[in-house]
Write a protein that binds this DNA or RNA. Structure first.
Lengths: 222, 222
DNA sequence: CAGATCGCTGAACGAGTGTTTAGTCTGCTG
DNA sequence: CAGCAGACTAAACACTCGTTCAGCGATCTG
């Protein structure tokens, strides 16, 4: 049994993959049909139009992503667990729950940057999560809300998202995918160091230029 | 004197504006021609093809941007001047040297995310600047290189770029354009606070420099 | 078993694409 | 003045796009 998905689901998945990789405007119905091994007419038969297919894939991706997101807000464990703050956690969620070559991060990237209602809604949702997370951190004493909590939450969010928007470029210059296990292991500690004590804190270990060193660094000062 | 640019320059500028706003794949030669007030044939007459026009606009934007960038590396004044670290400075450069509605930030955004050689080259260039800036900060004692200077420079860079990639979304949730004077005045101090002492530092007394923090308000709009 | 339904294909249609071509107008130069 | 080069337009080209449509074959259903 090679594939137990319905043909409709196969088309949806291939559209998702191609949309994530090249952008919905560039991908044609014929490309989707070829990738799914069906005729172009069948794509329109199952989904009424290309635009409707796109909206359906949007909704599907948002539903899946909401499921992943529930882990962030669901469990009562501290948001600082593991490596980073709320920032690194998004990458961790992806790494833990998605297969390695999943097109979902790429699709969410397009969505966030797409100037559509779906993209704006997604960002608002993430911003709300970021604000809640910052509040929780402040409640537990793990972090301060800062002078301008709205701005602080936004900065923490976009810093997290940037790793994810510029994934390919970071992979090129660092030599490691920031959304892989190795990438998170390398980026997480450095980010935690900055969040813990700012840029002025002394590195605990002798500094070498390119090395994946020990995580912990402490020593708060102004 | 209505316009002293050559028709060729007008076409280039309109293409730049439309490419920045909608993306080069979506924009048609006829749209560019209409915006420039000429016939579609003339666009091809001046630039050999649409792809060649796109490359020429790429090159033009990169040249202009390199001019802006030279201010960052050119003057010997501390990179920490004004509000933020190397991160906020990119936004300041845009604000200082570009007219308010300039399409250049939008075009650079597309370029950075475009999966082209030009985009990858641009990111490598910015990464090199970020590394140099971090080195300079470390030399002057204003910041530490951290345990992994490559990663630290990359994180500072992408954090700066994120404000810029997610400009519209941030404007939506914060109610202020982060690349405007008001936006920089609001984001800069918060970012500086984090970079100075991390997330745990107590909020200092209201800044004498930039005025309005928004302490506890919910759902900020203006 | 007749008939309706559904998944599915192949071919076609109209619209829009980038590009080409023929030709007009204007200004410069021998 | 003749002619020529360049800016510029209108029309057409070949092509691809999203979408429509008639029909085929299998699977239910009464």
């Amino acid at each position: 049994m090679p594939d137990d998905r319905t043909t409709r689901a196969v088309i949806r998945d291939e559209a998702l993959r191609l949309f994530a990789e090249h952008g919905p405007e560039v991908v044609t119905i014929r490309q989707i049909a070829t990738a799914a091994g069906v005729s172009p007419g069948l794509v329109v038969h199952h989904f009424r139009s290309k635009d409707n297919l796109r909206q359906e894939v949007d909704q599907y991706v948002l539903t899946v992503f909401e499921g992943l997101l529930s882990e962030l807000t669901g469990d009562g464990s501290g948001a600082f667990e593991g490596t980073g703050a709320a920032t690194a956690t998004l990458g961790e969620v992806f790494l833990r729950h998605l297969p390695v070559g999943s097109p979902l991060p790429g699709y969410l990237r397009r969505l966030l940057l797409s100037n559509t209602d779906a993209g704006r809604g997604l960002f608002r949702r993430l911003y709300a999560v970021s604000r809640e997370t910052l509040d929780a951190l402040a409640e537990s004493g793990a972090a301060s809300r800062g002078n301008d909590p709205q701005v602080r939450a936004a900065l923490l969010l976009v810093n997290d998202l940037s790793v994810f928007l510029l994934r390919d470029q970071l992979t090129a210059v660092l030599g490691v995918d920031p959304l892989s296990a190795a990438g998170l292991a390398r980026l997480g500690p450095e980010l935690l160091t900055i969040y813990a004590a700012g840029l002025n804190a002394d590195p605990p270990e002798p500094q070498a230029d390119a090395d994946p060193p020990a995580p912990q660094a402490e020593g708060g000062q102004a």
